[in-house]
């Protein structure tokens, strides 16, 4: 339902997004039936397509030409998809958006080849654009996203890490690709540099807020809403903002410390989720997300008024208040 609501916010873009959806399907077409099936399996699981949306919206601040915009929007979504299929191997995930993951439906090797195939398709597609600056930005982003994931694995089970570690991690893991979506949309539509910089920062702030909310929802949503057990981040040893806030209470700290990395029983998991949910941690984490959201809105204030600005504002508010 929430996904539908989010899509309503950018319903003006529906014809373009439908076109991008078709392009995505064509992009994963392969002479290997197996790769074709696995890629379509992933594609048809759906998604918010938030990266293409930001590319298109950013493009509205320049000379918007859908044929050019989709050359960036499609590969950015493909890069995101490739990372998801590999992430499911990393996290050993059985389901994604309520459907079996590629690794669960086939095996880890097929997931690796599917990810490599989709990523190569993305690069094949985007290299139609002969813009060194675009490729510098995107390649740097891809490396930083990987670094973020490597650090996330390094920082697992480290309850005593600080807020800066967490923020740096989510910047790389999530915010950079959204930020780049906005920046590249601005670049290919030929906006001036100032506008592109505001859009890049908007994407960064909204990406930070988005990830913090995602981490909050891991504790506040039900298993059904999440399509996986609530508290999965904690179970996997990922120290997210709600945990960092909750650990300030010595009793909660002990509870978390004693259970981190342990094989949890169902009652133990539910107890931890409830403890974090009932603490002040959720409100504190929301306040930090809200600060990023405000910064994102400040960036929008520098941009020309119009439909794109209005839609970005609505998306920002939605992200700040989303329930799952």
């Amino acid at each position: 339902m929430e996904k539908v609501k989010l899509k309503l916010l950018y319903s003006d873009l529906k014809p373009e997004l439908d076109m991008i959806e078709k392009e995505l399907e064509q992009a994963v077409d392969s002479e290997s039936l197996l790769l074709n099936d696995a890629s379509l399996h992933l594609l048809q699981a759906g998604g918010k397509r938030i990266r293409p949306v930001f590319v298109l919206l950013a493009g509205k601040f320049g000379n918007y030409n859908i044929d050019v915009m989709k050359q960036v929007a499609v590969p950015l979504e493909l890069i995101h998809m490739a990372s998801l299929v590999h992430d499911d191997v990393i996290d050993d995930s059985e389901t994604r958006r309520g459907k079996p993951t590629v690794k669960a439906e086939w095996n880890n090797s097929v997931a690796m080849y599917t990810g490599d195939f989709i990523l190569a398709r993305a690069l094949e597609y985007i290299s139609e654009i002969d813009s060194p600056k675009l490729h510098h930005i995107l390649s740097k982003t891809m490396i930083e996203v990987c670094r973020g994931e490597i650090i996330q694995i390094e920082d697992k089970y480290k309850l005593d890490q600080n807020l800066r570690d967490y923020l740096r991690r989510i910047k790389r893991k999530t915010a950079l690709l959204i930020s780049s979506s906005c920046e590249l949309g601005a670049l290919v539509s030929g906006t001036d540099e100032k506008t592109a910089a505001h859009l890049r920062r908007f994407g960064y702030f909204i990406g930070m807020s988005f990830q913090i909310i995602d981490d909050i929802l891991d504790f506040t949503s039900t298993d059904e809403e999440l399509g996986k057990p609530a508290g999965s981040d904690f179970i996997q040893g990922n120290i997210t903002l709600p945990i960092l806030c909750a650990r300030k209470n010595p009793e909660v700290y002990s509870l978390l410390k004693n259970n981190l990395g342990k094989e949890l029983t169902e009652p133990e998991r539910l107890h931890i989720v409830k403890t974090v949910r009932d603490s002040t941690a959720i409100d504190e984490a929301k306040a930090i997300s809200e600060r990023y959201l405000q910064k994102a809105l400040e960036e929008l204030a520098y941009l020309p008024k119009g439909n794109a600005n209005k839609t970005m504002r609505k998306i920002a508010f939605f992200i700040g208040k989303r329930k799952f």
Partner: peptide, 29 residues
Amino acid sequence: VLAGDFYSGIYYQMLANLNNITMIQRLAT
């Protein structure tokens, strides 16, 4: 898994730094 993805990012960046966009495309294919 991440090593493979990281190396992919590096080769893309190296070719981008060389402004060899055609090679990026050929290698992707």
